[in-house]
Design a protein around this nucleic acid. Structure first.
Length: 652
DNA sequence: GGCTCGACTTAGTAAACAGGCA
DNA sequence: TGCCTGTTTACTAAGTCGAGCC
């Protein structure tokens, strides 16, 4: 039971807190010991790594000759063995005691972030033209010109805002002479730069096997040097160890800053957070080196477009991320046990005399029922115009007393996170409907719907109901509980066909993705690939019909010459062929259904961020579905804690 | 109490990769 | 073997939320 588990953790935490109350001297001492231990584990880790082939190579060894059956079997066995070994080496942090509140690590060592290579001038035969004439640009202006040229095929470069922002920032990178000359973006001809870029991309695609291997090796070296850190005796993968290269800002939707120059980050811009100072690149120094073990980031810098902080953090499979993830689902489970009371209360609050309370109650009703995001306030003109629940405006909803035979329908139409459109027609209670009318009274379309409410007020209220409860917990809770319920319903009457089981899992996952409005642009090749699959299905159907008639014929032959054992064998063969055909056809049909239903829905986001992995692990155990059918390698790594601790009886 | 900022999670898209098939 | 296509990974933008300041 998770509740009890957490309770136990709390007791243990208190115990550890007592143990660790020796002050900074003690901490300093433990750091030194940790350091020595880490040096040792780092060395051991390096030895282990150098002996181990990379993940991809281990799973798909490079071969030139065709593999025999035995070889394939051996490769499979090796793969299983590797997986077991990996499992044995895994840091089972979930079995360890937690640090006292706020402390994230005791020792942290890393190499610092990896910087992208400096820009090199264009070859002499590649020219930029202004007003039809060749212009040789200086290094800085040329680099930025290439950023734009690389994007010529993209819709961005046709947008006025993008072009204007780019041109303004580009001119800042020009010399005085260049700036005087280049005054109109429409007179700029980047085509040769664009062609060169495309040729480079093409060349990369057609590289020989050997060249690709060399490149892979180089990248692997970088990953090994920069992609791992030592955190409290353990080697952990870093998520984003590469500094973001310079380029043009690709804000989503109608972002007012799209096209602005994202400048190159130097070591002098980077703050390092660790126990021991990593060597900065030659000739450079770090902006600052800290030892702050109350945060989880390894390095940070401030980006110039929006002035926000960027961080180097650990991979999702790490202890720091996993522990937080586990805690997130535990809070959601705590909400489950008291959600009925909370629902009763907000239904009561809808009748309150206080306008603020009523608005809060209606907003919470939407957050709970529709899994809307909280909706923080945003600075106007700084980002695209998107909203969440608390920041909804009058123009984002339409009230219908009667719509499609339903009373009191609210029609939502707004842009949410990442400018993804939220469109939904929802029947609501009469009381909610009446309140919405009241909130909209005497307001302009651009006015706030909930003018007495913001996310801060809402979250303060929520945390008074349950410690740790915020608006986003409702999304996690509703997503997970939906998955659990859907899995129960959809797999109740299932046969033991594996394809059907998976289709049901995906359908349950899809129900959550729809609830959370996780959309994707259908792939460009979608229609074509569906048509291809359909023709394969048709072909298989014909094959099945043929196999069936051949079987019929063979049976007839047996009847006529009943003693012929050869004919009997033929019948058996034909039977098997029919069976095989049927199975393949079924598999394809399921695949087609699944793909069609996924056309505009993205399942990954909910799977990674909202669905308690223990629900899926328990389902796999109950349904006898191998876990790797629903989680790929990195998902299994991310949810290792859940895979390890969950039995078939887990209930969210 | 309002505002800003830092730290972190959540998100969609593009690039890279893997595997099946002709 | 090479092409095609679906899957996985990398990338980084865009949210949430709480602490601290004035």
């Amino acid at each position: 039971d998770g509740e009890e588990h957490k309770g136990g953790d709390k007791d243990r935490e208190a115990e550890i807190t007592n143990k660790l109350c020796f002050g900074t001297f003690y901490n300093g001492l433990t750091d030194c010991v940790n350091h020595l231990l880490c040096k040792l584990s780092c060395f051991c880790g390096a030895v282990l790594i150098s002996q181990k082939p990379r993940k991809e190579e281990a799973e798909h060894p490079v071969t030139t000759k065709k593999k025999s059956k035995e070889e394939i079997e051996a490769a499979k066995a090796l793969k299983i063995k590797k997986r077991e070994e990996e499992e044995q080496q895994r840091w089972r942090w979930w079995e360890e005691d937690k640090y006292e509140d706020g402390i994230k690590w005791k020792f942290l060592e890393h190499r610092g972030p990896f910087f992208p290579p400096e820009y090199q001038h264009l070859p002499d035969n590649v020219n930029f033209y202004y007003n039809g004439k060749v212009v040789k640009l200086g290094l800085a202006a040329e680099e930025v010109a290439l950023f734009f040229a690389q994007m010529l095929d993209h819709e961005y470069t046709t947008k006025d805002v993008f072009r204007n922002n780019f041109f303004k920032d580009w001119r800042k990178e020009m010399t005085l002479e260049e700036r005087v000359l280049i005054s109109d973006l429409n007179k700029c001809d980047f085509r040769e730069l664009h062609t060169m870029h495309k040729e480079k991309v093409e060349a990369r695609k057609v590289m020989s096997k050997e060249e690709k291997l060399v490149m892979k090796g180089t990248n692997q070296k970088i990953v090994e040097e920069y992609g791992f850190c030592i955190l409290d005796h353990h080697r952990e993968r870093i998520g984003n160890f590469k500094i973001e290269p310079p380029g043009l800002f690709r804000g989503r939707g109608e972002h007012p800053k799209q096209g602005m120059l994202k400048k190159r980050i130097q070591p002098e811009d980077v703050i390092i957070n660790c126990s021991c100072i990593p060597e900065p690149p030659a000739g450079h120094h770090w902006k600052e080196v800290r030892h702050d073990n109350t945060v989880t980031w390894l390095a940070s810098w401030t980006e110039n477009v929006q002035g926000s902080c960027k961080y180097v953090m650990l991979n999702p499979s790490s202890k720091l991320k996993g522990e937080k993830d586990w805690e997130k689902y535990e809070v959601a489970r705590r909400l489950k046990s008291c959600v009925n009371g909370i629902r009763q209360q907000y239904q009561q609050d809808i009748k309150s005399k206080q306008m603020e309370t009523r608005q809060r109650a209606v907003a919470l009703y939407f957050i709970d029922k529709l899994a809307l995001r909280a909706g923080n306030e945003k600075e106007e003109g700084e980002t695209a115009d998107t909203v969440g629940c608390c920041s909804l405006r009058v123009e984002h909803i339409t009230l219908h007393d009667l719509l499609e035979d339903k009373d009191c329908v609210v029609e939502f139409d707004f842009l949410g996170k990442d400018c993804i459109r939220y469109y939904n027609k929802v029947p609501v209670t009469k009381r909610v409907f009446k309140n919405l009318k009241l909130f909209m009274k005497n307001k302009e379309p651009g006015d706030d719907l909930f003018d007495r409410l913001n996310t801060c007020l809402l979250n303060k209220h929520l945390s008074s109901l349950l410690p740790g409860l915020t608006a986003k917990v409702f999304r996690t809770f509703n997503a997970s509980i939906t998955l659990q319920e859907q899995l129960q319903q959809l797999t109740l009457l299932l046969t033991d066909n594996p394809a059907e089981k998976l289709l049901s899992y995906n359908r349950a996952n899809r129900a959550v993705a729809v609830l959370c409005n996780h959309q994707r642009v259908p792939p460009k090749t979608f229609d074509q690939s569906m048509a291809n699959l359909q023709s394969k299905i048709d072909g298989r159907r014909e094959q099945l019909a043929l196999a069936k008639s051949e079987l019929k014929l063979a049976k007839k032959e047996v009847k006529a010459h009943s003693s012929d054992s050869k004919l009997q064998a033929v019948v058996e063969r034909k039977k098997k062929a029919v069976q095989r055909c049927e199975e393949q056809l079924m598999k394809m049909e399921v695949q087609a259904t699944n793909r069609e239903e996924n056309k505009q829905i993205a399942l990954g986001t909910s799977k990674l961020n909202y669905l308690d992995p223990r629900i899926s692990v328990a389902w796999c155990k109950n349904m006898e579905v191998p876990l790797d059918k629903i989680y790929n390698k990195s998902q299994r790594d991310k949810f290792a804690w859940a895979v390890d601790m969950t039995g078939a009886d887990f209930i969210f």
